[in-house]
Write a protein that binds this DNA or RNA. Structure first.
Lengths: 207, 207
DNA sequence: GGAGATAGAGAACTGTTAGTTCTCTACAAG
DNA sequence: CTTGTAGAGAACTAACAGTTCTCTATCTCC
């Protein structure tokens, strides 16, 4: 239909492999930051990345996998686990890191992927690994340190107790029942996490 | 294209109001039970209910609202809040009710609606009201009874502590990290809920 | 019981998106 | 230089959301 065909980008320098991957991830993140996950289409990503849809589908089976990979790329490197000598401060630090992550672009991406995961158990398994691998692992390490210091009874360190704090954080993220601000995180830590591990929040702990 | 136009259902007895509503809800639930939420389309619902899409859209603005209403209809009546004289048994009863609900058709429907809610804050608010209104309200009442009995210190009854148990239940539902079986519920109650309210699970409580 | 308003059935239609496939061609490897 | 791989761009199919149209059953009010 267009009489003037415009520049044929097939003649431009052509990216491959990692370089192209990077450009696609950037396009995904930019789209999400700009218009949100629900407005993210494969066409738009392809156009923005100046890639072809065929290239997208050669790399990922669908939108969920693509966004999950992009989110993984956007994650900051594995945070070093805090070890301040206070369970309260360590916990708070981890929760703050998690909260900050969920409030950014990665959070937006995760919200979208989570929506797909709810319909597709395979995606759910990937997300689970992705999300749980971090918070839980860090919490576990923090608690091991607290046990070493004698701050916490090792019998209290069980999977469900470890998950309680992160679960409340994720619930607020998912249901949007309020901002993930410091007030919220402090309350969760003081009212729920520390009591579960037999630590008195008011025992001269710094913020 | 079809030479034989088939029976024109416009001449059949025509349902209205509540009767038609009922037929539509039944179609939605049947579709979800049969093929899951992701295979649920407005066309299929209309066809199955022998209703017109126009009728659907006159009643609901979109799929999410329709399914939310259908799920609400499928909910058992407001469970009467248990009051057995034991916080442990009361809590366990409520958690069991919730778990059973989430494992059935209502759960499947909620999974779908939740997926939409993640992208749309308005839907999220509806879901929040829908989901929280029940579990939290019941938990609150149970705890009020426990306080009355002197089983629990009233200062411990705070929003975040109340939400901890339900949040773990919802997390398991959402991430599908395992079955919502009685083992799970008992562990959550004994390891998390009761300790948060200063009750010793092993204090001669029945199952 | 008749007139007019309301709303349901069914079909056609539009626009958007996922996913596929085709052609053409850059680039890498031998 | 030859050949295989894969990227760019476009065309295409199929499915679905949402709208609108026609026809007509059913309700309401007189």
């Amino acid at each position: 239909m267009t009489v003037v065909p415009g520049p044929d980008h097939r003649t431009l320098p052509r990216r491959r492999g990692a370089v192209l991957n990077r450009a696609i991830f950037d396009a995904v993140l930019a789209e999400i930051a700009e218009s949100g996950y629900s407005a993210l289409t494969m066409d738009r990503v392809a156009e923005r990345a100046r890639a072809s849809k065929a290239s997208l589908y050669r790399r990922w089976p669908g939108r969920a996998a693509l966004v999950l990979d992009a989110a993984y790329e956007a994650m900051p490197g594995p945070d070093t686990v805090p070890n301040t000598g206070s369970l309260r401060l360590d916990t708070l630090t981890v929760m703050r890191q998690g909260g900050r992550l969920l409030e950014g672009i990665v959070g937006q991406a995760m919200r979208g992927v989570l929506g797909e995961a709810l319909q597709n158990p395979d995606v759910a398994a990937e997300v689970r690994e992705f999300a749980r691998g971090n918070a839980s692992r860090m919490m576990r390490e923090i608690l091991a340190n607290a046990v070493k210091r004698g701050e916490c009874d090792p019998d209290l360190v069980t999977d469900f107790r470890i998950e309680a704090g992160p679960a409340l954080l994720r619930q607020r993220f998912i249901f949007g029942s309020g901002p993930i601000d410091d007030d919220f995180l402090v309350e969760v830590v003081d009212q729920v996490v520390l009591p579960l591990f037999g630590v008195d929040p008011s025992a001269g702990n710094p913020t």
